[in-house]
Design a protein around this nucleic acid. Structure first.
Lengths: 188, 188
DNA sequence: GTCTATAAATCGATAGAC
DNA sequence: GTCTATCGATTTATAGAC
């Protein structure tokens, strides 16, 4: 690791962004958390816009890896879908945190257009992955009542994201569980 | 009555909050929009926290009325559900705006706890209304495949909210439509 | 009720020493 | 790479005249 400080800044910023939103933390907060002075942050990330791009880039790759890992560890449609839902449940962190994409969605006006594009690509990737999972579940019979896998994906991703947002608002992960119950009841 | 300054401030603040988020507008912006000086706003709303409470209070009543109006104008489960989806589609304003509750969900850290409680009550009201609609649709046969109305409601509200958020992020109302397609295909 | 004027704090960002 | 010091802009909020 040639630059440990940079990684520490990304970690701190991601944690802050996912719990408080992109406008909910400052360079001052990061500095205190990481243990350097705030002016020093500009050496690693010249602007907060540059930091947001780096955060989203890393997050994209992280979720892409997570989906690939799910594919390796599970070989049915239902178990893969359940694993993804579990990933989002974990990201909730007991009702305090959001997926970075959902969190950034709430501050679009403060983000550079490049990040908006990154978020669009992120959601496309997730939709493609979900479509493949629903298709597999339809073919292997582990997901009930799948007519159109792409339509299922288009409905499922916003539901997961919306449920996460609602659960975080009330700091109650139970809200996420209730929202997932109907979908989970279709898995075998 | 529409020339009332307090109402004009609420209108301006609601528009700004739903497009830019609660932290996306300032008293300075409101002042310019309404045509008074920013210090004068404090006479109507002593703090931004007080303004947020008034906004959410008005929004709760507005949606409660909208649901009651839907009940009056439509008498089947499917037409009532379609009318609510249409209401949220309209609130999207071509991909630029959000339901106030979703918008506020994205700035929870900046809001007084009273507003968090108001949002909780708002979502409870919507869940109750949706449950009743799914129950009616199950009984009158206009919504396909309803096993548990409360579970359907718990999944549907976050889906609508999440779809609105995604569509606003990419400024593309088509994303909202795609997310609703599966649910709409169950209506008769 | 609205105004001018200003306080007090915080923000992202820059310059330049070491 | 990190530091001190500071800038300029913006924020919510207050005091007091009219």
């Amino acid at each position: 690791m040639p630059n440990d400080t940079k990684t520490a800044l990304l970690d701190s910023a991601e944690r802050a962004a996912r719990t408080l939103g992109f406008n909910g933390f400052s360079y001052s907060d990061l500095a205190e958390d990481v243990g350097i002075r705030k002016a020093s942050i500009h050496h690693h990330f010249p602007s907060k816009a540059a930091l947001s791009i780096a955060l989203m880039e890393r997050y994209y790759q992280s979720l892409e890896s997570a989906c690939a890992k799910i594919d390796l560890e599970h070989d049915t449609g239902s178990t893969r879908l359940a694993a993804l839902i579990n990933t989002y449940y974990g990201a909730l962190d007991d009702g305090q945190s959001l997926c970075l994409c959902v969190s950034f969605s709430t501050s679009t006006e403060s983000l550079p257009s490049e990040v908006i594009d990154q978020m669009s690509r992120f959601r496309s990737m997730m939709l493609n992955w979900l479509s493949a999972v629903f298709l597999l579940g339809k073919e292997d019979g582990t997901i009930e009542n799948v007519a159109d896998p792409a339509l299922e994906a288009s409905a499922t991703l916003p539901m997961i994201e919306g449920a996460q947002l609602a659960a975080r608002t009330e700091k109650n992960p139970q809200l996420f569980d209730s929202a997932m119950k109907l979908l989970l009841s279709r898995l075998h």
